[in-house]
């Protein structure tokens, strides 16, 4: 519910800015960006389908109601609702890396502008002809995608930029190998703990395990799931290396006390031994 209020406020401000400011600017190319579309695409890509369609509906409704609009009420709401849902769908299937998000923004804004033009053409608006759409669309999509990429980087990356800088500085100085701050740090997928049985340096797996790809972390189920998968993959790889090391050095096997995957299922079938 609070999301709906936030999106309603964002939509209201965006639409008022669109008609009072952006539409009155004379930008090169003749076209102007569509702030409403940028808002909907950004929310959709950064969040999920439900929030994308909610933001799309609210923004479209505002566009229908803001005074100079003379088209039918509901037309923009319909189009933007679909655009928001589609962007949410797209965003959940993409890794949140900047180039992919920019490409997604380009596709989504092109689709959004085309859908608006198509809706106007279908409804028989005599102002819209294929010739005028052909003139206007490419430039408008270019402006939209640029704004959208900027907004996405700010929304997704902005929170993490200070943290990323700190981490880098810390690593460079070798003072703080792991700087962890705030919620962002807690959400980072953690590396699996070294099996405590293998305290000695001789059995530490050769070569560092593949690090989790450093991407812009967002609080989405998708990313969390992927991180979990990567973590379990590393654990498995560790286990394999541990087994190998153990077969090579049986002494270590005797010293081991904890539950390594190799151990599990063999010892203490009924609870812990007393």
């Amino acid at each position: 519910m609070s999301r709906a209020v936030i999106y309603a406020v964002i939509a209201f401000v965006g639409v008022v800015l669109q008609v009072t400011l952006v539409d009155r600017l004379a930008l090169p190319g003749g076209a102007v960006p569509d702030l409403a579309l940028v808002i909907v695409v950004t929310i959709g890509l950064a969040r999920d389908p439900a929030e994308g369609m909610l933001a799309g509906f609210l923004t479209g409704l505002d566009l229908d109601l803001a005074p100079p609009a003379s088209h039918l009420i509901g037309a923009s709401a319909l189009v933007f609702c679909l655009v928001g849902y589609g962007c949410g769908w797209l965003g959940r299937r993409l890794e949140h890396s900047v180039p992919r998000l920019v490409a997604a923004a380009l596709i989504a804004t092109a689709a959004g502008e085309s859908m608006q033009a198509a809706a106007a053409l279908i409804s028989g608006n005599p102002n819209v002809t294929t010739a005028s759409v052909g003139r206007a669309l490419p430039t408008a999509v270019l402006y939209d995608a640029m704004l959208c990429a900027l907004a996405l980087i700010l929304v997704l990356g902005g929170r993490h930029l200070p943290h990323a800088v700190l981490v880098r500085l810390g690593r460079m100085a070798r003072r703080a190998p792991k700087v962890r701050l705030g919620r962002a740090a807690r959400r980072r997928p953690t590396r699996p703990a070294q099996p405590s049985a293998l305290g000695s340096a001789s059995v530490r797996p050769a070569g560092r395990p593949a690090a989790v790809p450093r991407r812009l972390h967002v609080r989405s189920a998708n990313v969390r799931r992927r991180a979990r998968r990567a973590t379990s993959a590393m654990t498995d790889r560790h286990a394999a290396q541990v087994r190998q090391a153990r077969s090579a050095t049986p002494k270590l096997h005797l010293r081991s006390t904890a539950h390594t995957p190799a151990h599990r299922g063999r010892a203490w079938p009924k609870g812990r031994p007393q």
Binding site: V15, Q18, V19, T20, D23, R24, D34, A36, L63, A66, P67, P68, A69, S70, H71, Q116, A117, A120, N125, N127, V128, S132, A136
Partner: peptide, 9 residues
């Protein structure tokens, strides 16, 4: 304010 998109108003 001026019309958004293709509106001439």
């Amino acid at each position: 304010a001026v019309g958004q998109g293709y509106d001439d108003a």
